[in-house]
Every structure is written in structure tokens, then in C-alpha cells.
Write a protein that binds this DNA or RNA. Structure first.
Lengths: 219, 219, 219, 219
DNA sequence: AATGAATGAGAATTCATTCAT
DNA sequence: CATGAATGAATTCTCATTCAT
């Protein structure tokens, strides 16, 4: 309906940002288009020039979230070459992204089913690609002998669920762990046990490095 | 509004059974009271003699699900005394209950937020109690030296999420695992690594027993 | 539907008493049959064995009120022979009956229109008969030369509205007048001005009598 | 919900006009929003953009009536300086306004109780202000010696009820009096008796003036 | 392109009335 | 006769969507 692609981009972004917030707080069904318009600083009519219908807004909102996972993990791995380090970094990155998008992550669990099947699939595809990213990290560890042989697919899923749980069970976790503690404990539970002797050495040196980076050198 | 407690019990049950199904399939907001009435084989008005409002139906529906976890795991542990066996059985039981209530489990994730805060808390309380059940199983293992020291709380949560994931990610898992495989692989990933030597022996003998129980004796 | 006339009488009475109270407090439309049943200490079904429908309950409720006026004024006039005294007593009686049925009087103004025309007429007939009672008192005064010629019909209506207003404008009058003051002031405004010299003498002696009746004799 | 104040004004007026008519004919509870919308020539949804709820429509409808009394009497007194004439004119004006708003006046008596207490008060305030207007007219007469001392407050209320009764008892009055006769008789009953000799002269000359104005001069 | 007033289908909820027990 | 559970039509109110300006 609107031709200028730059404008389309901008308006959609503006509207989706409002929608993420509202959907996250109030839920998809209880949020009205008029609320979104108000928060986005536009008119209700305008939304229908950039989206087909309300479900369309939800779809792009969820897409934004799911794409965030997929797009934001790799930058965290840039320049990191060691498989064990990459895996740990990936897990930490996933958790921190979820932390930033906590409400939106919960929203994804709540509202994906409100999409019609075809679009639900697209969301699932995005999630699957992120899973494969993680699974690749696991596989790199096992292939190189840093991890003993495991069901890489299922282990990768544990990482994913571990990250998602930070949002899903935040009502419980918040009383027990900071994000950093959560990631550290998770590494202990879900990474360490599968490391080989070789792998343990790497993790130990990583922790030493982190330690010295965190606390300024003594001498 | 209706006095006979037996009738209240029966009608509520009848209505909730219809509601679980519909809410699970269509979602809370998209299911209408009329649909529930039709499926339950009653009139719309009747529902309001047994529930305050639609949210009330949702609450009791979710309560039913959450209580199922809490109530149905213990019977599976009856007569099982060894801590490692109890833990494994608890995990398997949780997964199989989730399997039976797969749609309802997803519903709980989708719709708990549609409850007003006070009731949401009651649902969370139920979940917490189930978690503690699991955590108790873990603690029994570590205390008795069958498991090395771990963060019992967080490990218990991994079990819980592992069970829930069977429902939440069934769209993905169904293509890879049967329920039995899922439980077996989960045990390998989330129980075995934490067992001490003593613990490993127990697990091994359990598996042997299961093996011989499953396949009829050869000779 | 029920044959025993004594029972019909009793049950109707029981139900109407509950209805007067509820209709008066909450209004006709906002009161439910179930509320009436509860207050009357019966079941909802029972009401339909003694009344055709809800409107029927209203009709008999209003009839009770309107009949009260008609039936309770005459006893107050019994043994009172002087026309002026009869008129004053009638006015005072009407006001005191309205005072007792204050809410019900307001109800009559609110809800008569909710009756179907035919029954509304019956209510109006009852009111008209009461009006004629009052008009008769006025006419007795004018005929006997205690009052100068007036529009008896309209003056009678002033008395009626004066009595009704005690209920209708009680929200305002309560802050200014007691019932006794109200009646006394009303007599001054709506009776005295029309009295002839002869009539004034009567009223004066009445007041003197009342005075001495009210305050115990001095000597 | 709608921003343009001119439009709000116009739409509210349009809707209230429909509501007055329907509420007056059918009563508040029996009139549906759909009916109002149809008669107002709008959609049901629209009504909720200009009114909070149905009670809101009733409130503004009654407010319109009550304000009419307050606002329309003074214009009738403009340029009229003599206290007795002002009082008579006020009474006549009140009656003629009630005559025009006959159904709406009855509506006010029927439905004010359907408002929540806070708004009921606002309606009563409006009525009280009108009463004070009338009371002021009475007081001007007594102060200037055109009327003998009376309970001005209560007398003013008689005037008010006299005017209201034209609507409330129209079912009876219509068979006896035209509006003009009603006002003339009312003046005889409720004004004349309280006039002093001075006052009577004024009233007589007023009537003479009216007479000659009404019937064209003979010669 | 943008606006926001208007629409009307749809949903929750209520309650007079019925009827099996 | 009495009960009270069951019914379902009717009503208020909401909100996604449209469209004239």
C-alpha cells in the first residue's frame, strides 16, 4: 500500500517496537491496535497501511525476537576460535540476549500459537536455525575431542531451554541467581560434565583468564 | 450458586474437561464460552453457575494440570526406595505425565499470564511444590553419596524443564525421539554425569533389570 | 396452579413483602426473582406458582402500597366528625402512611410505568379513589362553610402531592423538617388560607386541644 | 475518545435526543443501546465513543432535563421586575417547560435512582438550584410586603411540585385542565392566598393587562 | 501518506422462566 | 406442593478493520 521501501522499513520498526512492549506486558489478545497506535505515536489507520492485520503485527514482532537470537549470538563468537570457549560464549550470549528480551521471550512462548500454521512454521524455522548454531558449537567440541561423545542435538536443546528458562522461570530464578551466577552454574551443570580432560584444561584456563580480567591484576 | 457439592464437583469436572481440550487447541482467548458449553454438553448459562467468570474456568483448568504433576509423580515412586532409582523414576514419570497432558502443558505456558496476579501465584506455587519434589530426589542422591555435590536446585529445574520441553518442543522432538528414547537420552545427559561410582553401579543394575523385564527372558 | 386459597394468600403475602423491600431498595429491573425468593425464604420455582410472571409480582406489590393509602386513611378519621378536623387528620394520616411506606411510595413513582397499560390503570384507579377520599374531605369543608369556595379537585391534589412529596423529596426535607413539622407547616400553607372565619375558629380550638393533649396540664 | 469538541457536542446531542425519547417511552432498562443507535442514526459502537456506558447516557439525558428547568425559567423573567409578576411568571414558565418535557420529567422521577449515588447527587443539585430560583421569587414577594410571611422554602416546593405534577399526574389532569387553566387555577390556590392587599392589587392589574392583551381591544 | 471517526460482528454475562425430581 | 438446577434469549460493551477527508 505504501511504496517507499525506506518508509516501510521505518514505520514497521516504529510500530513493532510499540507492539513488542505492549504484547509483552499485556499479551497479544488483550492489546488493542489502538493502544499500539498510541504508543507508536501514529494513527490506527496507519498500521493497516504497513501490516495486513493484527496477526501480521504479531508475526513480525515474534520474528524480531527470534531473529535477535539468531543474529546476535554470532557477533559474540567473532574472533573466538577455541570450540570450548565458543560453546561457553554462545551459552552466555544466548542467556544475555534472553535477559534483554525477557518479556519478549515469554511472549514468544505465549503467542506463537496465535499465528496461523504457515507463519508459526517460519518462527519455528528461526528457532531451529538458532538451535543448529548451538548444536554446531557442541559438535565442534566433540569432534575435536574436547567433549566426550554425546547426543549433540539434545544437549544443544538443553542449552537453548536453559537460556529460555531464564525468561520463563525468571519469577523463580530472580530470587536465587544473578544472570552471571546463572550462566556460571549452567556451565557447570551442562558443559563441564561432558568435557574430556583436554576440555577441562581449556575451561580452567578460560576461567583463569576471566578472573584476571575481572579483578585488576594485583602486582 | 449451586449447593450440592457432589454436583458441583461433577459439573466442574465436565466443564473443565471440555475447556482443557478447547483452550489447548484454540487458545484461551479464542475459545468462547459457547464452545465450551457445546462441547461439555450444557448451556452457556450453566457454566456461570459453577464458575465466576471465564478466567475462573481457565484457573481451574490450569490448576488441574499443575496439580496433576504434583499428584501423579508420587504414586510412581511408591515402593521405590533407592535414591537413584527414585530420581530416574521421577524424571520418567514427569515426562510421561507431560506426554499425556501435552497440549495442556503448552496451554499452561501460554495462558498463565491471562490470570490475575493472585491466581497466577497459586499456579506458580503448585509448580514450585512439584519442583521441590524433584529437588528432594536430587538431594537424596547427593546426601547418600550417589551423586557428587551439585546445585540441587538448578539441576532439579533442568529436570523440570526437560519434562516440560517434551511438550513445548514436541513439534521438533516428535521427529527424533519416542517418549522412551527421550527419557533414556535425558537420563544420560542429566543424571549419569553427576553420579558417583557408587551411583553408576546402581544405574547399571537398574538398566539391566529393565532390560530383562522388557524383553522376555531368553531361556 | 395452587388450589388452597388460604395458602395462596399467605405465600403471596410472604413473597410481596420481600419484593417491596427489594424493589424499593434496588429498583424493579435490578431486583431478580432469585433475590426475592431468597429474601422470602422460598425457592425461585415457587414464585411462579403464585404469580404469573415478574410483572405480576410488581403489580401486586404496587397494589399493596396504593391500597394502603386507601385503606389506612379512613381508620384515622373514625369518630372524627368535624369537617375541618377530618381534613386535617386525613392530611396528617396520609403523610404518616407515606412516611411508613417511604421507599415503597418512591417505588410506585418509579415503576408503575413498567406495568402493562391495563394494570397501570388499576393502580391509577386506586390512587384516584384515595384522591376522592381527600376531595370529599375538602368538599365537606366548603359545603359547610368552613372553607371558602375553591377548586376542590385541584386542592385535594395538592394534599396528595404534599403527602407523596414527603417521600419523593425526602432527600431534601429530611434536613429541614420532622414529619410533625412537615404536617404542621403543610396545614398552614394548604389548609388555613382557605378557611373561613368559622373554619379558623375550629382549627384554633383543635390546636389548643392538641396542645393540651401533648403537654400535660400545668396545674 | 474522540478529540474534536465540536463533534463531541454534536454527537452527544444527537444521541441524547434519541435517548430522551426512548427512555421516556419505554423506560431506561427496557431501552437497548441498539435502539438508541438506530433512532440516533448511528452504530452501537459509536455511542461508546461518546459515552462511557449506558448509565452515562442516562445521566446526560437527565442532566439535560434538569438543566432545562434551571436555564429556561430565567429568560421568562427577563425584563419582568415586579416581584409578584416574577413569581407568577416563574410558576407559569416552570409549568410550560414541564409541559414541553412532560415525558422527560416523568423519566427523571422514574430513573434518577438508576444512577450511581455520585451522579444522583449532581441531578439533585440541579433540582435544588431551580428550587432556590423559585424560593428567591417567593422571598422577593414577602420581603417587599406583597406576600404575608410564610415558610418560603416549603411554599417554593409546592410550586415545584405543582409544576412537576403537571407531568406526573397528566393522566388525570389532561381530562380536566388545559395547561393554561392549570396554571391559572394553581395561581389561585398557591399564590393568591398569600398575597397582602398590596399584592392583590398587583395581581389584579396583571390579569387585566393579560386580558386586554389576549382579547383584542373592543372599540 | 496520514488521520481518526465510524462500523458492526462477536463475546461475556445475566436472569426470567421451566420442569424433572 | 416445593425445589433449584438448567436453559438460552437478550443485552452490554469491545475492538479489528474500513474509508472519507
Amino acid at each position: 500500500m505504501v511504496s517507499d521501501p525506506r518508509l516501510v522499513e521505518e514505520r514497521r520498526r516504529q510500530i513493532i517496537l510499540a507492539a513488542v512492549e505492549l504484547f509483552s506486558e499485556e499479551g497479544y489478545h488483550t492489546t488493542t491496535i489502538q493502544q499500539i497506535a498510541r504508543k507508536a505515536g501514529t494513527s490506527t489507520g496507519l498500521i493497516y497501511q504497513y501490516f495486513g492485520d493484527k496477526e501480521d503485527v504479531l508475526f513480525l514482532t515474534l520474528k524480531l525476537v527470534i531473529d535477535s537470537y539468531e543474529n546476535e549470538i554470532p557477533p559474540h563468537l567473532e574472533g573466538v576460535s577455541h570450540p570450548v570457549e565458543r560453546l561457553c560464549k554462545a551459552l552466555a550470549a544466548y542467556c544475555s540476549i534472553v535477559d534483554r528480551l525477557r518479556d519478549a521471550t515469554v511472549l514468544a512462548y505465549r503467542s506463537t500459537m496465535s499465528l496461523r500454521a504457515e507463519r508459526r512454521s517460519l518462527i519455528k524455522d528461526g528457532e531451529t536455525r538458532t538451535n543448529q548454531l548451538i548444536e554446531g558449537c557442541v559438535r565442534a567440541c566433540t569432534s575435536a575431542g574436547f567433549m566426550r561423545p554425546v547426543n549433540e542435538h539434545l544437549l544443544a536443546y538443553q542449552y537453548v531451554m536453559f537460556a529460555h528458562s531464564w525468561a520463563l522461570k525468571h519469577w523463580s530464578y530472580r530470587n536465587r541467581y544473578t544472570l552471571e551466577e546463572y550462566v556460571a552454574e549452567g556451565t557447570q551443570l551442562l558443559v563441564e560434565p561432558f568435557l574430556t580432560a583436554k576440555g577441562h584444561l581449556v575451561l580452567a584456563s578460560l576461567r583463569a583468564a576471566e578472573e584476571s580480567a575481572a579483578s585488576p591484576p594485583v602486582c
